[in-house]
Simulated assay, not measured.
Amino acid sequence: MKITFKRVETEAEVTAVAQLASEIWLDYYIRLISREQIEYMLENFQSVHAISDQLQEEGYEYYLMQLNGQNVGYIGVKPEEDKLFLSKFYILKEYRGKGYASVGMAFLLQVCNAHKLSAIWLTVNRNNDAAIAVYEKKGFKKVQTQVADIGNGYVMDDYIMEKEIALAY
């Protein structure tokens, strides 16, 4: 069984990411935020329209994580001046705990090297203890806190975490 990463380029692939987002977010985030906020965030940040805009207008790259050709998760990144913003890293519930996050992290190091970036940074909900523990295990450190207004009366109460990368040219 091998995990591969397929760069999202077609409308069908964008639709697959949006479907994964809906399934994963509604299952996972319900313990952390309200269903209304999840649905608002899905519509505004992970719908077909929102993902298409991120790809075409904002410089994001999305990748489908595939196990033997089946979509099991996705990664969304945005290369910046000297760091990679890890915007999304989600795996379907039945595939978590099988080492696929480590495979995803190795892939992210390849992305950093390809773009000559020296760090990966991300935001994570301050109450998302499971994700924080995974990121810390992978070498990320909390560097600051952030409360961001995302509209409609909702805020993201996050840690910003970062991992420095040793580039391999």
Rank of each mutant, 00 (worst) to 15 (best):
V134G: 02
D53T: 02
E164R: 15
L92A: 11
N71I: 12
N68P: 05
I160E: 03
V143L: 06
W25R: 11
F85E: 10
I160C: 00
D129A: 13
G99H: 08
G99F: 07
N128T: 06
M161Q: 08
I3A: 00
D82H: 10
T15E: 12
G76R: 01
A168C: 12
I38W: 09
N127I: 07
I33P: 04
R7L: 15
A50H: 00
Q146S: 13
I3E: 00
Y100P: 02
M105L: 08
A168W: 14
S34V: 11
K138G: 15
L67H: 10
E13L: 03
K141M: 08
K93N: 15
K163Y: 12
G104N: 02
E162W: 06
V8G: 05
N113A: 11
I75V: 11
E164T: 14
Y90N: 04
L20Y: 12
E57Y: 12
E36D: 15
V14E: 03
V72N: 02
I91L: 14
I30P: 07
K93Q: 15
G151M: 07
E57K: 11
E13M: 00
F85W: 14
V77E: 01
V14C: 00
W25C: 12
V77A: 05
S22F: 14
V8Y: 10
R35L: 14
